[in-house]
Design a protein around this nucleic acid. Structure first.
Lengths: 334, 334
DNA sequence: TTGCACAATGGCAACGTTAACATTTGGGCG
DNA sequence: CGCCCAAATGTTAACGTTGCCATTGTGCAA
């Protein structure tokens, strides 16, 4: 029962196999200039000693870590899981790993995310922005550290990618108007949410593009309870035949609120949400909603960094459109 | 506009500050044996050159990465976000980072997770087990790599931590029996889910401990639709006054299924779920459920690795109990 | 004045890997 | 038979950091 005292290095393997360290290295990288017999002998030595290449030595030599850092101000948040799925998938594809970091949001700045990352073994970084960082305009990425921001806003020095919230609202409003509704009421969200504000702007702009003055919106707080209250309030408004809620929880709450006031969905009022987060939760009703492709957002961000590989990094801005899912909560008036 | 050509090392800082590399290093670590004036001069040089310590050099020297690897077979899964929150929080506390890796589940083995991690800059690893790996009994962690498994099963060589699913069922069943119900029906889940099977076992054992023969269970698939079907089926069973569903989506589906057959909840039938995942989604009803502390599970796992710091790693097994949340879906028969 | 303790700093080596270059070996061909 | 080329392998140095030990400078007690 031999105790493992320390890590096994190429030197140990070389000694056991009776070759030079370089030959071991070449074997690890499966270089064609090593004789098959030699390779086999080296591999046997590696197996016997339990050799694993040391990441630090390798990175030091190569000057690359093959790792992308992800900075999040909030780990818990809608879509984060899907985004991470995308990060991991893209990283995998390029042979990269993902390093996850929670950044304290006080102050809420890109600088704090950046300095947090600077001491970690990463070649590039992704920052997920939920709110507006105080230094968005003035931020400069660390030299040599390609930085991708997950946001709809465009940044002069960093590539950006996000769901197209504006287009999402446009799709919803056009769809409802296309069903013959005269206007679309909106249940919004707290003002500090960037994505929510963009949905709000999209709703307003699209109505205006159709020469419809946007009705007064109701500000919710993402919860079904606030949607419920909004639904009750809108139930008494005779002009309200179509409601667009900023997420599915509020949309569903709104439906229940309308029903509590005797309105039926979709017969009396049509309701649309955003998120596609209720699919598995509400059994007997399919909410009309917009499904975002957060996985693709995550993949794009990591692809941008891991796919660069020495290519001069360019600044690009990418918006990924969502898809409107037709459910049972919209009625055509035509 | 000077172009940054390559990374700045202690050598560059030392030259500019007119001191030795060692003094720079000591300044970085704020050693008391450097004169304040010298420190300030070195710091000024660091600022001017934009010096950032190189992770690879440091790790190579220290033989530590200050990073914990997390291997997941599925990124998307209930509770993963909270667990990650816990990973990140604990890592932060110890000055560690988290490296996330998605492991291909074909084959579904601990070995594949382990070998995936072996080439990454991590000091220890956490594996999230959703199913039973083929090599659970025979797996040996990599030498020098402390390995923590997130599972209720105990492993002879690896520490383990998870929510106490067994206790969760015990709490639910005891609670319902305590309200005067004669038995508790159960909506289960696919058999390959480890946690689901443990809930099932807990339900069965607890009933038996009260000399109640467990009624026939209904196997669902985690979705509200399957809960809906189960609710409809159970609506016709006159012995059924209390239903325990293996997650909240099925519990909610079950309620709707019961209602579709004219049964009222909780007046006619009491329903309890597990997850506490509906809090923000169903506005007008608070489901009685069990809330797990996945964040704490994640923290424990990372604490175990990052908190060890040279201490001889011991094998421990930790179960974190959930908390029963009383809602509006249970009626007392007393 | 000498000796000594201690504070401040410097020199050197090593961590594990691999690119670049150097060397050896074997075989083909004039 | 000698020459040259290519295949196979070896040697060296460097990536950036920091622990260890050596050196220098300073103040104070004997």
């Amino acid at each position: 029962m031999a105790a493992v005292k320390k890590s096994v290095s190429v030197k140990d393997v070389a000694r056991l196999a009776g070759v030079s360290e370089q030959t071991v290295s070449r074997t690890v990288h499966d270089s064609p200039s090593v004789r098959p017999e030699t390779k086999e002998r080296v591999r046997a030595a590696m197996r016997e000693l339990g050799y694993r290449p040391n990441f630090a030595g390798r990175s030091l030599r190569r000057g690359k870590f093959k790792t992308v850092g992800v900075a999040m101000f909030n780990i818990t948040g809608t879509g984060n899981l899907d985004r991470m799925e995308g990060f991991a998938a893209a990283a995998d594809k390029h042979g990269y790993a993902i390093t996850l970091t929670k950044v304290d949001g006080h102050p809420y700045t890109l600088e704090s995310a950046s300095s947090r990352m600077s001491a970690l073994p990463v070649d590039g970084m992704v920052v997920i922005m939920n709110r507006m960082p105080a230094d968005f305009g003035t931020f400069e990425p660390l030299p040599g550290m390609q930085t991708v921001l997950v946001t709809m806003l465009e940044h002069p020095l960093c590539s950006t990618v996000d769901n197209d919230q504006f287009d999402c609202s446009r799709q919803v409003v056009e769809y409802l108007l296309g069903q013959g509704h005269k206007t679309v009421h909106f249940i919004s969200c707290p003002e500090r949410s960037l994505s929510g504000m963009q949905r709000e702007e999209g709703w307003r702009e699209t109505l205006r593009a159709h020469d419809i003055e946007p009705p007064r919106l109701i500000r919710g707080d993402w919860t079904a309870q606030s949607g419920y209250a909004a639904g009750q309030a809108l139930a008494d408004d005779p002009t309200c035949t179509a409601i667009y809620a900023s997420n599915d929880a509020m949309a569903y709450g709104c439906i229940r609120g309308l029903e509590s006031r005797g309105k039926r969905v979709p017969q009396d009022v049509s309701v649309v949400g955003v998120d596609d987060s209720l699919g598995d939760i509400v059994p007997d009703r399919r909410l009309t909603t917009v499904r975002f492709d957060n996985k693709r957002v995550g993949m794009w961000a990591v692809d941008k960094i891991a796919g660069a590989e020495g290519v001069a990094p360019s600044v690009e801005h990418m918006l990924i459109p969502g898809v409107l899912i037709e459910g049972d909560t919209v009625r055509s008036l035509r």
